[in-house]
């Protein structure tokens, strides 16, 4: 299903205690229990360097992480967007002006000049 497994880790079979982790500077940083994530939605995460990430869970319990900052407005809001898929490409639509960002590569689907940072995420059982 996934087209870009190198940038987003996937995991299934979420155990009740499964945890979501992000790869930051070569180390896995725990973020929250998977159960804190609603399928189809995201949460905001504060990273050690003070920057913010948006972490999402899809209906198949895969998790994704991108920068939380909406490059079109500067606001840290991408975690509050809705998930969607075009074909098998997962994306989040910005809650502000609705531009869509690929969750695996960070490309803006509505403006090819724009790309946002992506983090590697995984679910640790």
């Amino acid at each position: 299903m996934m087209t870009a497994p190198t940038v987003a880790a996937t995991a299934t079979a979420a155990a009740p205690t499964a945890r979501v982790e992000l790869l930051i500077d070569g180390a896995w940083v725990p973020v929250c229990d998977l159960s804190h994530l609603t399928p189809g939605r995201g949460v905001a995460v504060l990273l050690p360097d003070g920057s913010q990430a948006a972490v999402f869970r899809d209906r198949h319990d895969r998790v994704y992480a991108i920068a939380n900052r909406d490059p079109f407005t500067g606001a840290q809001v991408l975690s509050r967007g809705l998930l969607g898929t075009v074909g098998d490409r997962p994306y989040v639509a910005s809650p502000l002006l609705k531009q869509r960002f690929d969750l695996t590569g960070g490309e803006c689907l509505d403006d090819e000049r724009v790309r946002i940072p992506v983090h590697t995420a995984r679910v640790r059982p």
């Binding site: 609603t38 399928p39 189809g40 939605r41 407005t73 500067g74 606001a75 840290q76 809001v77 509050r80 967007g81 809705l82 809650p95 502000l96």
Partner: peptide
Amino acid sequence: GEQAALQDTNDHFLANLQKNG
């Protein structure tokens, strides 16, 4: 339930999102 995952951000937080978040 699932309804929570369907709402636009305004409905999701029962408030109106403004430009700085």
